[in-house]
Protein backbone atom coordinates (compact mmCIF):
# COMPACT_ATOMS: atom_id res chain seq x y z
CA UNK A 1 0.00 0.00 0.00
CA UNK A 2 2.72 2.46 1.09
CA UNK A 3 4.89 1.30 -1.78
CA UNK A 4 2.08 1.99 -4.26
CA UNK A 5 1.58 5.46 -2.79
CA UNK A 6 5.28 6.27 -3.08
CA UNK A 7 5.32 4.96 -6.64
CA UNK A 8 2.31 7.15 -7.48
CA UNK A 9 4.02 10.22 -6.02
CA UNK A 10 7.23 9.52 -7.96
CA UNK A 11 5.29 8.93 -11.17
CA UNK A 12 3.30 12.15 -10.68
CA UNK A 13 6.53 14.13 -10.17
CA UNK A 14 8.06 12.54 -13.27
CA UNK A 15 4.98 13.32 -15.34
CA UNK A 16 4.98 16.93 -14.15
CA UNK A 17 8.64 17.24 -15.12
CA UNK A 18 7.95 15.78 -18.56
CA UNK A 19 4.93 18.04 -19.01
CA UNK A 20 7.10 21.04 -18.12
CA UNK A 21 9.73 19.90 -20.62
CA UNK A 22 7.12 19.59 -23.39
CA UNK A 23 5.76 23.06 -22.56
CA UNK A 24 9.23 24.62 -22.64
CA UNK A 25 9.99 22.91 -25.96
CA UNK A 26 6.70 23.97 -27.52
CA UNK A 27 6.58 27.56 -26.27
CA UNK A 28 10.21 28.56 -26.64
CA UNK A 29 10.62 31.18 -29.40
CA UNK A 30 11.31 29.44 -32.70
CA UNK A 31 13.57 32.18 -34.14
CA UNK A 32 12.23 31.37 -37.59
CA UNK A 33 13.45 34.61 -39.19
CA UNK A 34 16.98 34.29 -37.76
CA UNK A 35 17.07 30.65 -38.87
CA UNK A 36 15.92 31.53 -42.39
CA UNK A 37 18.42 34.41 -42.71
CA UNK A 38 21.31 32.27 -41.43
CA UNK A 39 20.42 29.37 -43.77
CA UNK A 40 20.12 31.74 -46.73
CA UNK A 41 23.48 33.34 -45.91
CA UNK A 42 25.23 29.97 -45.57
CA UNK A 43 23.69 28.76 -48.84
CA UNK A 44 24.57 31.90 -50.83
CA UNK A 45 28.10 32.31 -49.47
CA UNK A 46 28.87 28.60 -49.72
CA UNK A 47 27.33 28.37 -53.22
CA UNK A 48 29.18 31.39 -54.64
CA UNK A 49 32.48 30.22 -53.10
CA UNK A 50 31.97 26.69 -54.44
CA UNK A 51 31.24 27.88 -58.01
CA UNK A 52 34.19 30.28 -58.05
CA UNK A 53 36.62 27.78 -56.55
CA UNK A 54 35.51 25.02 -58.94
CA UNK A 55 36.03 27.42 -61.87
CA UNK A 56 39.54 28.15 -60.53
CA UNK A 57 40.27 24.42 -60.12
CA UNK A 58 39.25 23.82 -63.74
CA UNK A 59 41.60 26.62 -64.82
CA UNK A 60 38.88 28.95 -66.08
CA UNK A 61 40.11 32.53 -66.27
CA UNK A 62 36.63 34.04 -65.85
CA UNK A 63 34.43 34.49 -62.80
CA UNK A 64 31.15 32.63 -63.47
CA UNK A 65 29.12 34.44 -60.76
CA UNK A 66 28.11 37.98 -61.79
CA UNK A 67 29.66 40.71 -59.63
CA UNK A 68 32.50 38.57 -58.28
CA UNK A 69 35.06 39.98 -60.77
CA UNK A 70 34.33 43.53 -59.57
CA UNK A 71 34.45 42.39 -55.92
CA UNK A 72 37.82 40.66 -56.48
CA UNK A 73 39.21 43.86 -58.08
CA UNK A 74 37.99 45.89 -55.09
CA UNK A 75 39.59 43.41 -52.66
CA UNK A 76 42.91 43.61 -54.54
CA UNK A 77 42.84 47.42 -54.35
CA UNK A 78 42.07 47.75 -50.62
CA UNK A 79 44.30 47.06 -47.63
CA UNK A 80 43.18 45.48 -44.35
CA UNK A 81 43.41 48.87 -42.61
CA UNK A 82 41.19 50.61 -45.20
CA UNK A 83 38.28 52.32 -43.32
CA UNK A 84 35.71 50.64 -45.63
CA UNK A 85 37.21 47.24 -44.86
CA UNK A 86 37.16 47.97 -41.14
CA UNK A 87 33.50 49.03 -41.31
CA UNK A 88 32.59 45.89 -43.30
CA UNK A 89 34.49 43.69 -40.81
CA UNK A 90 32.71 45.34 -37.89
CA UNK A 91 29.39 44.78 -39.71
CA UNK A 92 30.14 41.06 -40.13
CA UNK A 93 31.08 40.80 -36.42
CA UNK A 94 27.87 42.59 -35.38
CA UNK A 95 25.80 40.27 -37.61
CA UNK A 96 27.51 37.29 -35.98
CA UNK A 97 26.76 38.67 -32.54
CA UNK A 98 23.10 39.20 -33.53
CA UNK A 99 22.86 35.54 -34.64
CA UNK A 100 24.46 34.42 -31.38
CA UNK A 101 21.96 36.47 -29.36
CA UNK A 102 19.12 35.04 -31.45
CA UNK A 103 20.33 31.55 -30.57
CA UNK A 104 19.81 32.17 -26.84
CA UNK A 105 16.74 30.35 -25.46
CA UNK A 106 14.73 33.52 -24.72
CA UNK A 107 11.47 33.93 -22.83
CA UNK A 108 8.62 31.50 -23.38
CA UNK A 109 5.83 32.76 -25.66
CA UNK A 110 3.29 32.96 -22.88
CA UNK A 111 2.56 31.48 -19.48
CA UNK A 112 2.46 27.64 -19.47
CA UNK A 113 -0.34 26.08 -17.46
CA UNK A 114 0.26 23.59 -14.66
CA UNK A 115 -0.46 19.98 -15.53
CA UNK A 116 0.77 16.45 -15.04
CA UNK A 117 0.02 14.92 -18.44
CA UNK A 118 3.37 14.62 -20.24
CA UNK A 119 1.59 14.63 -23.62
CA UNK A 120 -0.28 17.88 -23.00
CA UNK A 121 1.00 21.47 -22.99
CA UNK A 122 -1.24 24.48 -22.41
CA UNK A 123 -0.39 28.14 -22.55
CA UNK A 124 -1.96 31.53 -22.10
CA UNK A 125 -0.26 34.12 -24.32
CA UNK A 126 1.39 37.13 -22.69
CA UNK A 127 -1.09 39.64 -24.15
CA UNK A 128 -4.02 37.36 -23.24
CA UNK A 129 -2.74 37.08 -19.66
CA UNK A 130 -2.39 40.87 -19.37
CA UNK A 131 -5.87 41.33 -20.80
CA UNK A 132 -7.55 38.83 -18.49
CA UNK A 133 -5.79 40.16 -15.37
CA UNK A 134 -6.67 43.76 -16.28
CA UNK A 135 -10.24 42.57 -16.75
CA UNK A 136 -10.18 41.07 -13.23
CA UNK A 137 -8.85 44.33 -11.78
CA UNK A 138 -11.58 46.30 -13.57
CA UNK A 139 -14.14 44.05 -11.89
CA UNK A 140 -13.33 45.68 -8.52
CA UNK A 141 -15.90 48.30 -7.65
CA UNK A 142 -14.47 51.82 -8.05
CA UNK A 143 -11.62 50.90 -10.43
CA UNK A 144 -11.85 52.95 -13.61
CA UNK A 145 -8.72 51.99 -15.47
CA UNK A 146 -6.36 49.05 -15.17
CA UNK A 147 -3.26 48.09 -17.07
CA UNK A 148 -1.03 45.11 -16.53
CA UNK A 149 2.64 45.00 -17.48
CA UNK A 150 4.24 41.61 -17.80
CA UNK A 151 7.52 40.36 -16.46
CA UNK A 152 10.61 41.53 -18.31
CA UNK A 153 14.38 41.07 -18.18
CA UNK A 154 14.62 43.56 -15.29
CA UNK A 155 11.24 42.99 -13.61
CA UNK A 156 10.40 39.63 -12.06
CA UNK A 157 6.85 40.57 -11.01
CA UNK A 158 3.63 41.38 -12.82
CA UNK A 159 2.76 45.04 -12.37
CA UNK A 160 -0.90 46.05 -12.17
CA UNK A 161 -1.51 49.80 -12.48
CA UNK A 162 -5.04 50.69 -11.52
CA UNK A 163 -6.78 54.05 -11.14
CA UNK A 164 -9.89 55.06 -9.24
CA UNK A 165 -11.96 58.24 -9.18
CA UNK A 166 -12.30 57.99 -5.37
CA UNK A 167 -10.46 60.55 -3.27
CA UNK A 168 -9.93 58.04 -0.48
CA UNK A 169 -8.86 54.65 -1.94
CA UNK A 170 -9.01 52.85 1.45
CA UNK A 171 -8.19 49.14 0.81
CA UNK A 172 -8.79 49.24 -2.96
CA UNK A 173 -5.21 48.21 -3.73
CA UNK A 174 -5.69 45.12 -1.59
CA UNK A 175 -9.00 44.34 -3.31
CA UNK A 176 -7.35 44.65 -6.72
CA UNK A 177 -4.55 42.33 -5.62
CA UNK A 178 -7.11 39.81 -4.34
CA UNK A 179 -9.08 39.95 -7.61
CA UNK A 180 -5.90 39.41 -9.67
CA UNK A 181 -4.79 36.57 -7.36
CA UNK A 182 -8.19 34.97 -7.68
CA UNK A 183 -7.98 35.15 -11.48
CA UNK A 184 -4.50 33.58 -11.35
CA UNK A 185 -5.98 30.80 -9.18
CA UNK A 186 -8.51 30.14 -11.92
CA UNK A 187 -5.75 30.02 -14.55
CA UNK A 188 -3.28 27.96 -12.46
CA UNK A 189 -0.01 28.76 -14.23
CA UNK A 190 2.97 26.44 -14.06
CA UNK A 191 5.03 29.14 -12.35
CA UNK A 192 2.86 31.59 -10.48
CA UNK A 193 4.12 35.16 -10.89
CA UNK A 194 4.29 37.62 -7.99
CA UNK A 195 2.00 40.61 -8.43
CA UNK A 196 2.64 44.27 -7.60
CA UNK A 197 -0.32 46.65 -7.49
CA UNK A 198 0.08 50.41 -7.91
CA UNK A 199 -3.06 52.41 -7.37
CA UNK A 200 -3.68 55.99 -8.45
CA UNK A 201 -6.53 58.10 -7.00
CA UNK A 202 -7.93 61.64 -7.11
CA UNK A 203 -5.85 64.11 -5.16
CA UNK A 204 -7.92 67.32 -5.79
Amino acid sequence: MTETLVQDVIEEAQNERRARRLAVREFRPRRALAGFMAALLVTVVGGVAAIELLAAVLGSGVHPVPGVAEAADALRGRAWNDPHVLIAAAGVAVLGLAFLLAALPGRLRGMPLAGSDPRLAGVLGRAALRRTLADAALGVHGIERARVRGRGPFRRRLLVRAATHYRNPANLAELVRRAVDERLDRIEPMHRPDVDVRLGWRKD
Binding site: R31, A38, V42, V92, G96, F99
Partner: peptide
Protein backbone atom coordinates in the same frame (compact mmCIF):
# COMPACT_ATOMS: atom_id res chain seq x y z
CA UNK B 1 23.04 25.95 -36.32
CA UNK B 2 22.20 29.64 -35.79
CA UNK B 3 24.81 29.81 -33.01
CA UNK B 4 27.41 28.11 -35.24
CA UNK B 5 26.73 30.60 -38.07
CA UNK B 6 26.92 33.49 -35.60
CA UNK B 7 30.18 32.20 -34.11
CA UNK B 8 31.76 31.81 -37.56
CA UNK B 9 30.70 35.34 -38.58
CA UNK B 10 31.86 36.83 -35.28
CA UNK B 11 35.25 35.12 -35.54
CA UNK B 12 35.72 36.18 -39.20
CA UNK B 13 34.59 39.77 -38.57
CA UNK B 14 36.62 40.03 -35.35
Amino acid sequence: AIAATGTALLLCGG
